[in-house]
Computed example of a mutant assay.
Amino acid sequence: MKEIIVRAVAGSLILISLLLAIYVSPKWLWLTGFVGLNLLQSSFTRFCPLEKILERLRIGSPAGDQPAGKATFMKYYFNKKITGSFEEAVQKVTEGLSREGFGVLTEIDIKATMKKKLGEDFYNYKILGACNPPYAHKALLAEDKIGTMLPCNVIVQEKESGKVEVSAINPMASMQSVPNDALQPIAKEISNRLKKVIDEL
């Protein structure tokens, strides 16, 4: 996106300077030469003043277009650490989700599954699949493949006795990979609701 903007601005300046040189003064050709020289040097040095300005203004630079090592990513989850029993935490999360219009469609007990399938001991870890029906309906109407990202997962884990961490997916981060603007207000609302659930624990 940033490269497209740079090319569009450079091309426009060259055309404008040529027209001004014809109809106003030949001195405008200096601008044509200046733009051309900048394009030439940037092909060797990889330095473009306009690109730097766009970076500062955060224009045309989504996370995926950032140079390696400089990418900025939205945190993909909300989390909070609380004290109490694991069972109490799961109950509090379920009740909080209910207050925000979410039902728990699935409850996966990772500890029990690891023991049953692998014979491995694991700490308390549950994945709650939460769904807000009205917003899920809106999302599916806007993007039929969005079902691959549903439901919204909330995890409750206890690595140390009495110390529980609860984390919920941040739908706004997930939507960065979906080129559909109609999903943005839906994702924002769901993100706000899930964050509220976590914050109020």
Rank of each mutant, 00 (worst) to 15 (best):
Leu97Lys: 04
Lys188Trp: 00
Leu201Pro: 00
Ser17Asn: 09
Leu150Gly: 03
Val90His: 06
Ser167Gly: 08
Asn170Gly: 05
Leu39Gly: 13
Asn79Leu: 12
Ala130Leu: 02
Gly11Lys: 10
Met175Phe: 15
Gly60Leu: 01
Leu31Arg: 03
Gln41Ile: 11
Trp30Ser: 13
Lys2Met: 13
Lys80Pro: 11
Phe73Asn: 09
Thr148Pro: 00
Leu97Pro: 00
Asn132Gly: 00
Ala63Val: 10
Lys163Cys: 07
Met175Ala: 14
Val164Leu: 09
Ser17Gln: 09
Gly60His: 04
Val90Thr: 07
Gly33Phe: 10
Gly119Tyr: 07
Val9Ser: 12
Phe73Asp: 07
Lys81Asp: 08
Thr32Trp: 02
Gly129Ile: 04
Val90Phe: 07
Gln184Trp: 04
Val164Asp: 06
Glu55His: 13
Gly101Gln: 04
Val156Gln: 02
Thr45Glu: 04
Ile14Gly: 08
Ile146Trp: 08
Leu40Ser: 02
Asn192Val: 02
Ile190His: 03
Ile82Pro: 03
Ala142Gly: 08
Leu37Met: 12
Gly64Gln: 07
Glu100Ala: 01
Arg46Asn: 14
Leu150His: 05
Thr83Asp: 15
Ile190Ser: 07
Ile146Asn: 08
Gly103Lys: 00
Ile5Pro: 04
Tyr77Ile: 12
Cys48His: 09
Ala182Ser: 15
Lys80His: 09
Leu105Ala: 09
Val154Glu: 07
Asn38Asp: 10
Leu18Gln: 05
Ile59Asn: 11
Tyr123Lys: 05
Phe102His: 01
Leu128Thr: 04
Ala130Asn: 00
Glu189Met: 11
Met175Leu: 13
Ala139Leu: 08
Gly84Phe: 10
Asn180Glu: 14
Thr45Cys: 08
Gly103Leu: 11
Val24Lys: 11
Gly36Glu: 05
Val166Gln: 05
Leu50Gln: 08
Phe78Ala: 00
Met149Leu: 14
Gln184Asp: 08
Ser85Asp: 07
Glu107Tyr: 00
Leu20Glu: 06
Arg46Trp: 11
Gly96Trp: 01
Asp121Arg: 11
Gly33Met: 15
Leu140Glu: 11
Gly129Lys: 09
Lys92Gln: 14
Lys2Leu: 12
Pro185Lys: 06
Asp65Phe: 13
Ile14Glu: 08
Met175Glu: 07
Ser25Val: 05
Lys196Trp: 03
Gly69Met: 06
Ile190Phe: 07
Ile82Ser: 04
Phe47Ile: 14
Leu118Asp: 08
Gln91Arg: 13
Thr94Pro: 03
Glu189Thr: 15
